[in-house]
Every structure is written in C-alpha cells, then in structure tokens.
Amino acid sequence: MLLEVENASKWFGGLQAVKGATFGVPEGQVTGLVGPNGAGKTTLFNMITGTLPTDEGTVTYNGTDITSASPQDRVAAGIGRTFQDVRLLPRLSVIDNVCVGVQKQPGERVRNVFFRPAKSRAEEQRTVDFAHECLDFVGIPEQVRGQSAGSLSYGEQKLVSIARLLATRSKLLLLDEPTSGLDESSLDQFRAVLAKLLSEGHTVLLVEHNMLLVRELCHRAVFLGTGEVLAVDTPEKLMESEVLRDVYFGA
C-alpha cells in the first residue's frame, strides 16, 4: 500500500463528516473513492493532502506517518491532487498555471533569481518546456497557452489542471471528480486523457460519481457513505450490491 488511511475522523462543529475511515491505496493501481453526495469524499481528500487537519486517525504514505505534515511537505513527498472546482489561477497564463506545478524550481528562490541568473534562466526554460509537454499530453493546443487561464472553457480548464498535476511528477495522484460538470464531447476527450494517464502505471485515487467510468478505469473502489467506509471491492461487485445501491440512490 502506497497510502494508508487509518481510523480518520473529522468534525465540523457538531457534525461528523468523516467517521473512522480506514482503507489503503495499492501502488501502481487505480483506486476509486465513490459514494453519494455529502458522504465526505472531498473532506477525506483534503485530509490526505493536508489541506484539512485530521481530528483523529493517521495517514501513512510510503511507510511514513504524514498525519501532521504540511501540504507543502506532502507534495514534496510525492502526493499531488486536482480540485473538484478546478482552481486554476485565472489571471495567469495557461502555461504559467502548469509551470506552477513543477517542483523544486531554483528560480523560486530570490537568491537564485538575482545571484544565479544564468542558472535560473536555464532551469526556468526547462520548467517551461516540461510544462509544454504536460499540455501536449492532455491535448491543449499551442495557440491558447499564452492566454489567461480564465479565458478557457470549463472542459479545457479541467484538462489544464490535469497537466498541472502531471507537472508535479507526483507518485500518488489524487483526482477529485475530474469529470464533473463536463458535457458529452469534453467527457470523451477527458476519458481518453484519463485512460492514457492511468495506463502509465501511476498510483491513483479517484473520486468519481460516474460509476461506469469507475468500472472502466478502476481496479478497485472504496465506497463511502455518510462519512464511513462501507465497502472496499472491485467496481463490479460494488455495483451488484443491493445495500450499496440503496445508500447511493437513496441518499
């Protein structure tokens, strides 16, 4: 298991959003995180990335306890994510948005900017070239890369956020509802990108509503209902379960 979540709990005021969640994400596989709306999937995600602190429980990555690690430390260790609401930086260019994902840029230290200009410039060009490759991978055309990210369509922005994730070179990819809000044509393009990505052997935890997509892409899935892990199995088995179907469609 590359990632292990053990007994994780989170309260918001009096409301318990996540209750003692325990599951693992095996290396090199695609694990789905499914469940009805409000089940606590994004909260769980935020606890794994460090954006929200856990009230109880532990998160272990690659054998190391990262429960109290900052988001910065976690991405340095190799955990990267996308956001359900995309969250690109609308004022920055598309290419800059992807460059932001690249880790350990020397040019991000002031001393390098002013005292090692040649090295910084060379490294920046490598960062930019790599960012362009990431954009090639997701299929964003060259001509829009200099535009502000805010000028792109929702579907294109979602693709850019995948490129940004790729730029982090993370070992563990956390995708938060990557296809939500996409129309039919964007969805097809997206599925192709996802499939390509997943065929490269990354370890992925994927939050998805679309059970057909989960069945197509995931080796196994974790079913979350009202903050609790109700089942962990292959997507087919989960879809067959009447109990789970009630939870999913009854909610």
Binding site: T49, G50, P71, Q72, P90, V100
Partner: peptide
C-alpha cells in the same frame, strides 16, 4: 509566478508545495 499564485489562491499554492 509563485507570488501571484499565493496571491490568487493560497490553498492551491500550498498544494503545489509553495
């Protein structure tokens, strides 16, 4: 670029390791 990222969305900046 990092300054602008932090300015516009701190959560994203932290998630990207800044």
């Amino acid at each position: 670029r990092m300054m602008h990222t932090i300015r516009d969305d701190e959560v994203v900046a932290a998630t990207m390791g800044k």
